[in-house]
């Protein structure tokens, strides 16, 4: 089985046209930008606030678009047509992930421009955000595989949206509830910590542990989505 870039790009283009006409999904792209605009008006934000918006973009755009792209194919009975085509599952998922990835990165870049966020080391932050996007795409894939319709997908995504957008505040309560110390290892918290370090002028050598934790999350989520896929495709 050879991986065909042509088929992947065909799926990418088809999904791009489809999503751009889907108000329901494209509206979610606006939300983080709107938040960025509102926060940006207040002026002078801390890294924490900036990353609330970025984490929101990641979970709402990254995970949700991926999830609804897959769920809609199932809802409209078009996924079967794709499976009966020469395109392999990997190509189908790659085409969709590519669209989600590009959209998420664009939303984050625009949000950062609106709130005027300038990281000290753009390469490190860029790598960290790209890796985080991969994690959220994996998460969206799992949720897309378990849900049956876009409606269901938009409900299921909500707890994850709150967890990953506002979950980082849990660390503030960690002194009172030691259990919440675990929240420090969440991918969103790791991203914030990393950004804080970068703002103080840290280089790659200082922040590799954060990237490693995010990579562990990515590996976990991709293994889980593979398992889910194998299970779901059997029935």
């Amino acid at each position: 089985m050879t991986f065909s870039l042509k088929r992947t790009l065909a799926i990418f283009q088809k999904d791009y046209k489809d999503v751009s006409k889907n108000m329901y999904v494209s509206f979610t792209v606006i939300v983080p930008l709107l938040m960025a605009f509102l926060y940006g008006m207040q002026g002078d934000m801390g890294v924490d606030m900036v990353y609330t918006v970025i984490n929101m973009s990641l979970s709402l755009v990254g995970a949700y678009i991926q999830c609804s792209l897959i769920a809609e194919e199932k809802e409209k009975n078009t996924l079967r047509g794709l499976m009966l085509s020469p395109a392999s599952t990997l190509e189908i998922l790659a085409g969709k992930s590519l669209l989600t990835f590009v959209t998420t990165i664009l939303v984050i870049v625009f949000s950062a421009m609106i709130i005027d966020y300038q990281p000290e080391n753009i390469v490190i932050v860029g790598v960290a955000i790209a890796l985080s996007t991969l994690f959220y795409i994996g998460l969206g894939t799992i949720l897309g595989l378990v849900t049956k319709s876009v409606m269901e997908a938009s409900v299921v995504i909500m707890p994850f949206f709150f967890l990953f957008t506002f979950g980082s505040y849990a660390t503030l309560l960690a002194e009172r509830f030691p259990v919440l110390k675990a929240a420090e290892y969440m991918p969103n918290t790791q991203l914030i910590e990393l950004a804080k370090e970068v703002q103080t002028g840290a280089g790659f050598g200082d922040i590799w542990s954060y990237l490693a934790v995010i990579c562990v999350w990515i590996a976990a989520v991709f293994i889980l989505s593979y398992v889910t896929f194998k299970k779901r495709m059997m029935d």
Partner: peptide
């Protein structure tokens, strides 16, 4: 060609 095949309705 199945009877319950779907289409990309927005395209």
């Amino acid at each position: 060609l199945s009877i319950d095949d779907g289409l990309y309705e927005r395209l």
